[in-house]
Simulated assay, not measured.
Amino acid sequence: MIRAAWRFLTSLTTCAWVGLAFCLAGAAGSALLGRYPEIFSDMDAQVFSGWFARKGFAAPGPTSWLYGLLLATALLAVNAACCTFERLVQIFRGKVTLRRLLPHVMHLAFLGVVLSHLASSIYGDRNPGIAVPEGGFEPVGRTGWVLKLDRLDLVMGAEGTPKDVSAAVTLYRDVTPVAKGVVRTNEPLFHEGYGVYLKNFGPTPWGAPYAVFDANRDPGAVAVLVSSVLFTVANLLYLVPARRENA
């Protein structure tokens, strides 16, 4: 029984079939996401584990593709871990070369991405839609911080549309400023693992400018980046000798 389970978990055939199941579940999800906006519209606005606990069990039909996707991801991760362990034992008992190690570096990088996303989906935090008028203050979720919009600057283009938008902000804990900076699109302010992102702007009903921010914490974000770079580098290094041999 144990041998059969190990052969199943280290099999390339298992990887291929589970990969196919992953793709089919993802394709089903692409269709169902737009069909059930009342279920999925706020999926990215909160930590995945919290969202899934509330809606994944409440609507098992429309979210069934997620069960398949999560199960396939878990099986792919276990398959990669078992296969890598088995092959590394064989490699280190024989001749160790970089080329023999590179596929398993990619496997380990894949595991790093999966585990990092798991950490973010459990221990992350989402605080969307923090609307702050210029000169005003708004609390940032349960962080204990208050966000002040010091100044909103708009640079208008020739067509009359905004060419550049920047928001000077300050984070306070009680009455003490703890972080300050200028936030632009894709240029957030980082503090204690949180990123403060500029999402929208406009005038208030009384004419004062305001901006809308998201404050998110993704504890696995750096590890995802490092693992992705490691996977890419290992992949490129693995391909280079093959291209030379075929030249």
Rank of each mutant, 00 (worst) to 15 (best):
V155R: 15
E138G: 02
L147P: 00
P60H: 07
I91V: 13
V155F: 13
E138T: 05
T63A: 07
E159G: 10
A119V: 13
K148F: 02
M156C: 07
G124R: 05
T63W: 00
G135H: 03
P133L: 02
S41G: 05
P139I: 04
G56S: 08
P60G: 02
I122L: 15
G68T: 03
V78F: 11
M106A: 09
L76P: 00
G68Y: 06
R54M: 09
R54S: 11
T73I: 09
A131H: 03
L154C: 10
A72E: 02
G157A: 11
A158F: 10
G124Y: 10
E86L: 13
N79L: 08
K95D: 12
F110D: 03
G68R: 07
G129E: 12
G160N: 07
P162M: 13
R126Y: 14
P60V: 04
A53N: 08
D44C: 05
C82H: 00
W65D: 07
P103C: 06
T73L: 14
L111I: 12
P128S: 10
N79W: 02
H104V: 02
G160Q: 06
R87E: 13
A77C: 11
A131M: 11
W145K: 04
L76V: 05
L71D: 00
A158P: 10
L88V: 06
R93M: 01
E159F: 06
K55R: 14
V96G: 01
W145A: 02
E159I: 05
D44S: 13
G136N: 06
L66V: 08
L75C: 10
M43Y: 10
A59V: 09
F92E: 04
E134R: 02
F137L: 15
G124M: 11
G135C: 06
K55D: 10
A131F: 02
G124H: 09
P128A: 12
F110N: 01
G68S: 09
V47C: 02
H107V: 08
G68P: 03
T161D: 15
A81P: 01
K148R: 15
P62I: 05
E159C: 05
A74N: 03
G135Q: 08
P62D: 10
F137M: 15
F52T: 01
V114P: 01
V113P: 00
V89F: 08
H117A: 12
R100T: 12
D42Q: 12
T73M: 14
G112Y: 08
A53F: 12
R100Q: 14
A80Q: 11
S116Q: 11
R151A: 09
